[in-house]
Design a protein around this nucleic acid. Structure first.
Lengths: 204, 204
DNA sequence: AGTTATAGGTGGTCTGACCACCTATTAATT
DNA sequence: AATTAATAGGTGGTCAGACCACCTATAACT
């Protein structure tokens, strides 16, 4: 008796598709093989292929146009998030993990970006801080998005963005207004070591 | 000509299912109607029902057991984050991002776990360090897996595992053997602040 | 009563059939 | 010849029906 639950076909298809994208170095906008072609190539029924594709579509990873084909899309989580938020039963453990993880990543990004700012960048950050937003969280997103871009670490940025989207639907998680200003101040004064402390103070 | 793209059947099914759950006040663990029953009730083909259910399953919102039925599950974003991350990971061309991010997460986990060790834990960690492994990376994985478990942050652990899996296939990323021993020493001597430095030294 | 068949329900999967839609090629029209 | 119209083939969207493997409760047997 195996402890491994046998993998469903559509799960395998997911892996295969991922492999295909990697192997062929596909980028956003590129076309995937047709459903019928995939079915033949992967030795699976078209319905199984579709189950995998539909799931990917719901996650916003692919776009499908009737009569044309299936295409890799630039990742936009909005539809996923919206769907999830309507289903979500909040589980405190999960929530805490999420917020804690997000904060860690924000902190490390803030440190990574430390020596990559110009005077013009500081101006722009102050401007973002002073701007008025519809939702307080928009400031947070704009501000940290700027920082993440400065780190040049796209992966970290994407993961953060993902976490941001997920946490956003559950509860507001905005830092104290003075926080942002203080962070920029640390940047301008080249005070690296205090960044860690600044984030620690934000523990709620 | 309508600007609204006509909704696909499985999208509608998603809405119907959500409505069904709400209307009948279903909680985690409760059973959904069978696929055939839903197909009849919603006037749709079973394959369309399945496309919706598979998407929900991938999102971690439902669980299906062959021969039994489909059940509401407690919501865990881990699965989703994992899947999305796996796509995001392969997309980012720079593998350096991956290693840097992984190291950051390992470092923060090491700090999170700081005050959660017992003397027995230290013994176990030393044992893991001294064990012989087939691959050097196995030690790394075993050691940090232990640390991640101690943090109690399952989300962070999963993301790390994912990164580990990806990086593993590309290039070995093992710390200096003395590193692990030194980390445990910092734990035993309650030297929190030196953890950050220890990881910095590992910069290659 | 306890055990063993058994029948029916359930998800898992495949196949084949249409439909609506898009595009490129071809044919018809001017 | 240039333009337009018809067409054929590919693509996703959807359905119906067929098996299979698996589970469970019931019925039959000992």
């Amino acid at each position: 008796m195996s402890l491994l639950p046998k993998q469903k076909v559509y799960q395998g298809v997911l892996d295969e598709i991922r492999g295909f994208i990697e192997k062929n170095k596909l980028n956003a906008g590129d076309k995937l093989p047709s459903e019928r072609e995939l079915a033949e190539k992967l030795q699976a029924g078209r319905s199984s292929i579709r189950e995998a594709l539909r799931a990917l579509e719901l996650l916003g990873l692919i776009e499908t146009k009737a009569g044309e084909g299936t295409f890799l899309s630039t990742y936009r989580p909005f539809q996923t998030v919206e769907l999830l938020s309507s289903f979500i039963l909040q589980e405190s453990n999960t929530r805490e993990d999420l917020f804690l993880s997000k904060r860690i990543i924000e902190k490390e990004a803030a440190k990574l970006a430390f020596d990559r700012f110009t005077d013009q960048d500081f101006e722009e950050m102050y401007r973002m801080i002073d701007d008025t937003y519809e939702h307080p969280n928009d400031r947070h997103v704009a501000f940290f998005n700027f920082i993440f871009m400065k780190t040049g670490n796209l992966l970290l940025a994407r993961i953060w963005h993902l976490m941001e989207k997920f946490s956003h639907t559950i509860k507001r998680d905005v830092y104290d207004p003075s926080f942002y200003r203080e962070l920029v101040r640390l940047y301008t004064e080249h005070d690296y070591v205090s960044i860690e402390n600044l984030f620690s103070k934000q523990e709620s």
